[in-house]
């Protein structure tokens, strides 16, 4: 399924979580996420936990943690 992270379309398996999506996007970003240096935001601007599910067509952004 296709999910967009930071304006990049990623093709990831069904049942993936945001953790998987960020790892697919970039290992460096994934490590930063794990170290609480990055947070994930949905298309509405809400923060989303990394264990949340992702679905076809969803859009997410990574931002530096406040």
């Amino acid at each position: 399924m296709k999910v967009i992270l930071n304006n990049t379309e990623l093709n990831i398996f069904k049942g993936a979580t945001l953790n998987d999506l960020v790892l697919m996007y970039s290992e460096r970003s994934y490590k930063m996420l794990k170290n609480n240096k990055l947070c994930i935001y949905d298309r509405f601007g809400n923060m989303t936990e990394p264990d949340g599910p992702v679905y076809e067509g969803q859009v997410f952004f990574l931002k530096r943690a406040e």
Binding site: L18, D42, F44, N46, M47, T48, E49, D51, G52, P53
Partner: peptide, 21 residues
Amino acid sequence: SHTTMKEPMMVNGVMIVQAGS
């Protein structure tokens, strides 16, 4: 969706809230 809302969303006059996971 495991959404951590610091502020509620307002849609059509409806308040939407969610508290992470």
